[in-house]
Simulated scan of single mutants.
Amino acid sequence: MPEQHGLTPTMTASEVNRLLKEVYPQLNEHYDFYQVTEVFPGGCTVRLNADERHLRPGGTVSGPSLFTLADIGGYVCVLSHAGPDALSVTTNLNINFMRKAEAGPIDGHCRILKLGRSLMVFDIDIVAGPDQQTVAHATGTYSIPPKRPTSAVK
């Protein structure tokens, strides 16, 4: 996805990965299924390393696994652009499934459509397979908590 002018990330991909391990350890537990591979002005790329745990009958990556990737893409965008406040929450997420995805790396290319003081709107194109075809597309909104005043040092 192209960079967007006026939106500068405040965190790198490795910093976001470290933060996710700290504040959201249950996401990956003992594995690195969901990863941030890139953060750039106005967006990010996230990856699901799908294996048999993510498959439904028929060998297709499950909808909940792809939905989680979409939600993580929005979370990474809000963390990396609005600040590392782990209390940002999803207020809406709508996903359309286009075609089946098989086990293997699945990438989500996420971009911020609007970043305000209290809300961030994003979309994500989820691609997989050797041709990197779109397997799902989602749009969503994150609520950004108000900035908390820092306590005065006495």
Results as ranks from 00 to 15, higher is better:
143 S>P: 00
79 L>F: 01
98 M>I: 13
73 G>A: 11
18 R>F: 03
128 A>Q: 11
123 D>L: 05
70 A>G: 13
109 H>A: 07
10 T>C: 15
127 V>T: 12
86 A>K: 10
92 N>T: 10
137 H>F: 14
85 D>P: 02
105 P>H: 08
38 E>P: 05
129 G>P: 05
40 F>Q: 12
101 A>Y: 05
56 R>E: 15
46 V>S: 07
74 G>K: 05
76 V>I: 00
152 A>W: 11
27 L>E: 00
153 V>L: 14
90 T>H: 02
27 L>M: 08
75 Y>Q: 01
73 G>L: 05
120 M>C: 10
126 I>C: 08
57 P>H: 13
108 G>V: 04
100 K>F: 08
23 V>S: 08
118 S>P: 04
60 T>C: 10
27 L>N: 00
30 H>Y: 07
47 R>I: 06
10 T>W: 03
97 F>R: 07
5 H>K: 13
45 T>W: 01
3 E>L: 09
84 P>Q: 09
105 P>D: 12
6 G>K: 03
65 S>W: 05
89 V>D: 02
12 T>Q: 07
51 D>W: 05
133 Q>A: 12
118 S>R: 15
82 A>R: 03
137 H>N: 12
104 G>N: 06
139 T>P: 03
30 H>I: 10
25 P>R: 04
136 A>T: 04
95 I>N: 03
38 E>K: 15
137 H>C: 10
100 K>T: 15
76 V>E: 00
123 D>C: 05
103 A>H: 05
108 G>K: 03
107 D>T: 09
90 T>N: 09
109 H>I: 10
130 P>R: 15
51 D>A: 12
96 N>T: 14
87 L>K: 12
23 V>N: 03
98 M>W: 01
84 P>S: 10
153 V>M: 14
136 A>N: 02
80 S>C: 04
145 P>N: 08
114 K>H: 12
57 P>Q: 13
68 T>D: 00
45 T>F: 01
143 S>R: 12
127 V>C: 10
22 E>R: 11
1 M>D: 06
